[in-house]
Amino acid sequence: MSETMEFDTVSPASQPEALAAIRQLLADCQLELDSKIDVFVVVYRQGSLIACAGLSGNIIKCVAIAPQWRGESLSLQLVNEVVQIAAERGHFHLFLYTKPENQRFFTGCGFYTLVEVPGHVVLMENTPVGIQHYCQRLRMLRQPSNKTGCIVMNANPFTLGHRYLAEQAAAACDWLHVFVVREDVSFFPYAQRYELVTQGLGGIPNLTVHHGSEYMISRATFPSYFLKDKGIVDSCHTAIDLLLFRDYIAPALGISHRFIGTEPFCPVTNKYNEDMKQWLQHAHCPAPAIEVVELSRHVRNGQPVSASRVRRLLSRQDFNAIQALVPPSTLQLLLSEYAAEPAPALERYG
């Protein structure tokens, strides 16, 4: 059978005809074509497409096999081929989304379940020790504390709103863990965001600033977060991200409370906050519940402080207005790296 099957790759950007066939095959399997796929592995038999698997960065998606060709041999070869192509592209740590009923098959292909949203979707990774090693490293950063809080922030960029939230949370806890979203797809690069958080939270004694990871608001755990400008929210994605937090990250650090700011502007973040109460606090789950504490957003001059507002003001180069919303460290970075005319601006606001 396999002699008559041809394996090939399709690059969605440059092969629209091949892509149309992929779209059709996915539709036949009740799947949608993801717009972010870098490359597809495809299998043809007598000129017609019978199987495909997409790779988006280090995430395998859009895996489909025409019903009459389903069987261990072809699907195994397909996964094998994607894993090899990912390796050629420098991706060794892979994630995979699939339906719960296909979990068993992928387990046979070296994938291990991270988290399942029952009846909907499973996130797997291709290592038996990936998240375990990550949690081991987190456990070494545990602090003696009865009430341990956590904030996950993108800080794009860090504002007085972030500072306010952290101050409130730190005052309410024995120890506070602050994670900075690591995925580098925001306006401000990760290195800058992390630096600004570290500087901006200076002087609060009972907190640790952590680097984010692929297991927390990343392209793997929460793809739609980074499409938030499009207003796309997928509740399965928020569930995956939040259950990972509840099952692995929170127990490793002993986190019992998660703090969030109310979200008046961004529908994705607002939905995430709402889902947080469901998945961290109410949903049945072997891991202990985590109390979600929503604090009202810091208000300056009658307006809530938000990073998106700072970015809008920055696009107008309105440093006067920005100055009221950010700590000196953020202002300094904005002036030195993002001002159209850095020198005079520094003098005025430095």
Binding site: L76, Q77, Q84, H93, G108, G110
Partner: peptide, 21 residues
């Protein structure tokens, strides 16, 4: 650096190596 050898086919094995932190 991370590297990969082998396949998941029957009678084979897949070996992944990576530096240890």
């Amino acid at each position: 650096k991370p590297a990969l050898a082998g396949t998941l086919e029957s009678s084979d094995l897949q070996v992944k190596v990576a530096p240890s932190p």
